[in-house]
Structure formats: structure tokens, C-alpha cells
Amino acid sequence: MNSVSTTPLPPATLKDAAVEVKGVNVVFHRRGSEPYQAVTNLSFTIPQGTVFCLLGPNGSGKTTTINVLNGLLRPTGGDVRVSGLDPTRDRRELLRRIALVPQETALYNELTGAENLEFHAKYYGVAPREVRDRIAHVLELVGLTDRATHRTGTYSGGMQRRLALARALLTDPEVLFLDEPTLGVDVQSRQAIWERIEQLADEGKTVLLTTNYMEEADALGREVHIIDHGATVAHGTQAELKAMVQGSRVVLEFAAPERADRARAVLDAVSPTTVPSEGSLSIAVPRGVETVAFLRQVLDEINAVGGVTGFRFSEPSLQDVFLHFTGRALRD
């Protein structure tokens, strides 16, 4: 792994901040093994009414961070405020203002969609006279009114995710934590969930979502915070992050995936490559090099491999940002 670049931290306090995280550390102590540092000096601020993406690979500390924010986990060090409240000290009050969609949907497969929502509303203390209207409203919001009387065990993964989102909205929270909300979801459902999330932000709700999908962060994150091994890699708006990776990328299309694989083996020695889609290859044009000379070298290298059917320049993506700061692709 390359050395991690440190970027300036966000402003310490925003007047309209919904979430403030300052210098948080989380260390797990388990009997018989070395202490494990899950989160290291994490800091970020989320303004109200925005969608904030916590982007990182599996095991990077995203869920641990959410557990700190909702008070399930007391940080080893640092300071946390959510809606102006300390999640540990003011937990009960905080839980009235936030909602969580956990990584797993946490639905009861033996109950129908409506029964799941009804149970949740009653358990969370929604006023009895409002329960029915709220359920109808959130079901409509996520487009599941027609399937409300079906058992959730019969739902597709995407429908279950949408129902979990509906459940979180039952209590009309100020801040929503969505832990990998589109994990394992088909493209159509993913698009529907993204639209709902954007709509929520437009209505003034603050959304923190964790993801390891670059395209999700690209589509939703007005601000993106990239973490790896529990530590900040980079953060900022998408434009700011992409601007950090100066230079372009060259995307090569191949006639067959095997050709792309062979070309990757050759080109990785020239500059790090990624695979944007099957049968294609993206290679970074390093900063400070003479572009024409670099392209000539690339073309010479792949000449032996052959099978190139297309060639274009592309602007940096978040994938490139991650690659730039960590020296590896997000899913490596």
C-alpha cells in the first residue's frame, strides 16, 4: 500500500451541523488477542439536509463508525455529537431523533410488509392514531403499497431494502444512518432507493450512508469521506476529491476479456490500472509525464497483446481517487 495522504480536516464545528465527529478512536480489546484499532482519529462534519457518504472497503470501519454515532459503541477517544447530542450520555433522546437501516434488512420474514411496519411503529412508540397513516405514507414513498400484505420472505432483495428504508422513516427521524443500503440489490431497485435518498435530503433530512460502491457515492454523496483501515484517506465534495487526482485516464476497450487481462498484466508495470467493466481497462496518466510519450509507451506495450477495439480519455472517478490514495482498487 502507498503512503496515505493526509488532507486537511473539515471545519471543527458548523453552526448547522447534524453530525460532528472529532478525533474519534475505537479500539477493541478481546481476551487472548492483541487490541484491534477499528477507527483511528476519525473526524468529519455533516451539515443538516445533506447526503454524506462514508466510502470504504469491507472491514474499513464504516459500521463501527455508525455504531459509535447511534450510541451502541462508546468510542475509546474523541468527541461525537449527533443532532447536538452526545450518543452515549443522551442516548435515549438521541434515539428519538435518528433512525438506522442496518446492513442486513432486519425484517421478519414470517410477517407481511405491513405487519413489519406496524410492529416497528408500535415498538418505537408512534402514537396509535398515527400508525395507520404513517405506514400507508412510507409504503407509498418506497413504492411497496401493492405488496404490503405479502410476507417479506417472498420479497426480492431490493424490495426488502426499500421496506427497511420505509421502516426507518416511520418515526420521521432528523438523521438517517444507512449502512450499505443497496448491498446486493439489482440495478432497478438501486436506482429507486437512490431517488428516495435524494428526496429525503431535499426534504431537509440528513443522511449518512456507508457504501463500498463507488457509483453509489458518485450518484449520492454531496460530500464523500473515504476511509480505509479505520482511518481517513480523503474527504471533500466529489469535485474536490476528483481534483486531487490530477491528470486523466485512458480507457482501452478489448475484443475479449482475456485480452484485457493480458494487457493489464503488461500495463501494471507502466502505471496502475483498473477494470471499469469486463473487457476494458483504465490506466492512469501519471502527473508530470509527457502525455504523448506516455501514450506511445502504452500503445507499444499493448501492441503485442492486440485486440484493442476502442480508445478514449476519461476524467478521474472516485475509484481513481481511492486508487490514488491507497495504491489499490476499492475491492482489492
Binding site: L95, E104, A106, L107, Y108, N109, Y123, G125
Partner: peptide, 17 residues
């Protein structure tokens, strides 16, 4: 087992219910 515990524990009503 069915990974439904978290929403129950994150309810503002606490552990007693």
C-alpha cells in the same frame, strides 16, 4: 440469528420492553 436485534436495541424505549 435472523439479524433483527439491532432495531430492537436502538429503540428509544430501552431494554425493559
Amino acid at each position: 440469528e435472523e439479524r433483527t436485534a439491532k432495531p430492537l436495541v436502538l429503540s428509544p424505549v430501552g431494554n425493559a420492553p
